[in-house]
Write a protein that binds this DNA or RNA. Structure first.
Length: 748
DNA sequence: GTTCTAGAAC
DNA sequence: GTTCTAGAAC
């Protein structure tokens, strides 16, 4: 079935409400079923036609004033373009995206016999798999006035109901609806796709499901809002695409583009929720303050975030920002969860503002509860070290410990708590309708917030480790302060000096030196080391088990491991990995006490990273000269199992009996593996490297060259033994991969 | 029946 | 990090 015509009941004037609905989805996603449910009559009797026939039929049906549903896969933009052209000012173009779990599409396709696409049996899985890899979701900019995403059977049913009920007199709101977490990187393995019934791990809905969006829009009587919001989502999608390419799982590889890395502050509207501040007045102040700071802060971006898709404050602010001609590249509004901007929306924000309470404690509700909960207990500890309470109109900058999920998952380096004026009689510091005072305090609050952000931007532009100290009403404290145990109650002025002392003794001394000075410490038992870890991080960081100490021991006493060590210097030790995961797999260990993993690395370690990289390069080149078929990659694991910072230098054949499980594969072939070149760049720019959560290791198995998915390790290994596809473009950039060179110096 | 994964123990 | 092994998947 290619084209279905839905007859408009009667009369000429209904023509203007005719609609072309393009169904977008893989085979087995339920496009035909969708049409069957919505349609009364079908053109083409369910037989497949050519695209040309389909277009002709569709045009004819439209001429008759009928609505048309296009039932082809339409998974890429080019395919859709010709159908979009059918639209004209009298005809709305809609897209319905059936983005159901791959396992469902596959199992349906496999079952189906004699379906027009001739996709039976085993081939179906492969075809669906391939199509899903290449899918390009439709965007409003292609010419659609409405896009409905369906990501579950219930979404599909809701869409069917909606289109079935669509009479000739009514229209549906414009905009894009129902797309959930577009960044669902962690997918279930293919076997799970085929077998299990549960939905994808990341299918989180935050009230933006199809039904919610539609209702919200009705309540707000505005299709305009829907459309505008889509623009925001689209902008964010743009970001996602820039870095994501065709494979979401690899998006972070390319995420270091300068655009994406502009310092960005995400902030909720202060005081307008629980504190009941007037929205009109608040939106004026937001726009006024953003206007003031946007020009001051170079390429820094500001993002106003609200959870609800029908948010009044967002539309007010958007309209007023438009009037003031604020650069839309620097000030965005965003609908979504402020604690999942990157993982849920592809939007990278290094600083997040919290609408805090005066006690700076978790709980309450709204943004404050969400941020404390998402950041984990380390945020509370860190906050309490900065300040015990907060007055209205003030803000406090808190660097996030690298152990915080908000840091690892979302790339947030700082949280700025800000307290606004309160107009709610049930809350502390109630201003009793005194909006003169209220506006004053709200202005002060945004100034403090943006000054805090400015100070972070500034400190990152210059040296990350030289905080500018007190700035306006904002206290900025270097992240290193976390290393000071809480009991050290010292003045702020003393703190900086003290901090450097701590830093000097705990970080910069090399193992060798430390060993001489504190002989007992290096020989300390496991238990003591763990205690040290606990104390230093001020949070429940992963303790290193006894089995995780071997690299640490080698780095500390390389002379005792003469048989294993290939190179020793003051800074590094080179060893072969005891369980190599490829033909060549060696480790460059840092010989610095306290540098246990990438999360511990700061800007002052940049030279060390460069040294490690150069040593790794030297060894890779040596092996490349011996075997020109090898290809090398240098990088770090986001969360290593073994203590002591180590750089992996690993050939890309992955031909090894020691590569046995998903974790092994994904730790070298997902964003969990941080290329050394990217790590150095991030440390240089931001003082920290972005790290991926261990969740990503459970991701499906994909070939690192052609990106095809495989059901299990043995099959993957037999595939990679033969696959000669070129590597993905992202890996070929910036010297992430090292190839042997010909005599004339060109790459092979 | 064999193959493969994933969690616990080390 | 690996090894061991129960039980799921085939």
């Amino acid at each position: 079935m290619d084209v279905d015509g839905k007859s408009s009941s009667k009369g000429e004037e209904e023509k203007k409400n005719a609609v072309v609905v393009i169904l977008v989805g893989a085979p087995g996603s339920g496009k035909s079923t969708f049409c069957d449910h919505v349609m009364r009559d079908t053109i083409g009797n369910g037989k497949a036609g050519t695209k040309a026939q389909c277009l002709t039929n569709a045009a004819a049906a439209l001429k008759d004033g009928k609505s048309v549903f296009i039932d082809r896969c339409n998974l890429d933009r080019e395919q859709r373009a010709d159908f979009v052209k059918l639209g004209n000012p009298q005809v709305d173009m809609h897209a319905v995206v059936l983005d159901l779990p791959a396992k469902l599409c596959i199992s349906r396709s496999v079952k189906r016999e004699g379906h027009e696409g001739n996709l039976q049996g085993g081939k179906a899985a492969a075809v669906v798999n391939r199509m899903l890899q290449k899918k390009e979701f439709p965007k409003l900019s292609e010419g659609f006035s409405r896009i409905t995403f369906c990501q579950s059977e219930s979404d599909v049913q809701a869409a069917i109901d909606m289109y079935s009920a669509l009479g000739p007199q009514n229209t549906l709101p414009s905009g894009s609806f129902g797309q959930k977490n577009p960044d669902a990187k962690v997918q279930l393995g293919i076997m799970k796709f085929l077998k299990k019934v549960d939905s994808p791990v990341n299918a989180v809905s935050k009230g933006d499901s199809l039904k919610d969006s539609v209702t919200t829009d009705k309540e707000n009587d505005s299709s305009f809002i829907g459309r505008e919001e889509l623009k925001e989502v689209e902008e964010v999608k743009g970001v996602e695409e820039v870095k994501g390419g065709e494979d979401l799982a690899f998006s972070s590889l390319e995420s270091t583009s300068s655009f994406d890395n502009a310092p960005t502050l995400a902030f909720p509207s202060i005081s307008t929720a629980d504190f009941q501040f007037d929205l009109e007045k608040a939106s004026d102040i937001i726009v006024e303050k953003v206007f003031e700071y946007v020009s001051k802060l170079g390429n820094a971006r500001f993002v106003l975030v609200d959870l609800s898709s029908g948010s009044k404050i967002l539309s007010l602010v958007r309209a007023k920002a438009g009037e003031k001609n604020i650069d839309s590249g620097k000030f965005l509004t965003f609908v979504g969860d402020i604690t999942r901007l990157y993982s849920g929306g592809g939007l990278r924000c290094n600083v997040v503002a919290n609408a805090a309470n005066w006690r700076l404690k978790p709980g309450g509700g709204g943004v404050n509860a969400a941020i404390f909960s998402a950041a984990g207990p380390s945020l509370e500890t860190a906050t309490m070290e900065r300040a015990g309470s907060l007055a209205p109109g003030k803000a406090v900058v808190v660097p996030l410990p690298s152990t915080s999920p908000l840091f690892c998952r979302e790339g947030v380096t700082h949280v700025i708590h800000v307290l606004g004026p309160n107009m709610n009689p049930k809350r502390p510091n109630f201003l009793n309708k005194d909006y003169k005072k209220g506006c004053e305090v709200l202005r002060e609050a945004y100034s403090a917030l943006f000054e805090g952000f400015a100070s972070i931007v500034k400190s990152q532009e210059t040296s990350y480790e030289e905080p500018t100290g007190k700035l306006g009403s904002v206290r900025l404290v270097s992240p290193v302060d976390f290393k000071i145990p809480r009991k050290n109650q010292i003045s702020n002025a003393d703190r900086k000096v003290k901090r450097e002392d701590v830093y000097e003794s705990e970080r910069n001394k090399k193992c060798k030196g430390l060993h001489e000075e504190h002989g007992s410490k290096t020989g300390a038992t496991n238990g003591n080391d763990d205690a040290q870890n606990e104390k230093n991080n001020g949070s429940a960081s992963k303790a290193w088990g006894a089995w995780a100490q071997s690299l640490y021991r080698i780095a500390t006493n390389p002379e005792k491991h003469k048989n294993d060590v290939m190179e020793i210097s003051d800074d590094i030790v080179v060893v072969n990995d005891l369980y190599p995961k490829a033909k060549r797999h060696l480790l460059v260990l840092a010989r610095y006490e306290g540098l246990d993993r990438l999360a511990d690395v700061r800007k002052e370690n940049l030279q060390l990273l460069r040294t490690m990289h150069d040593v790794g390069l030297k060894w890779a080149e040596k092996y490349l000269s011996e075997d020109k078929t090898l290809i090398f990659r240098l990088g770090y694991h986001s969360a290593p199992s073994m203590r002591q910072l180590h750089l992996h230098v690993i050939s890309q054949d992955f031909d090894s009996k020691h590569l046995k499980n998903k974790k092994h594969w994904n730790s070298f072939n997902s964003a969990f593996f941080r290329d050394s070149v990217d790590v150095m760049e991030e440390i240089d720019k931001f003082g920290r490297a972005t790290l991926k959560d261990e969740d990503i290791l459970l991701m499906e198995l994909r070939c690192h060259r052609c990106r095809s998915a495989h059901p299990n390790i043995p099959r993957l290994k037999s595939h990679i033994g033969n696959c000669r596809a070129p590597f993905p473009a992202s890996l070929l950039q910036n010297g992430r991969l090292l190839f042997a060179t010909d005599k004339d110096g060109t790459n092979q």
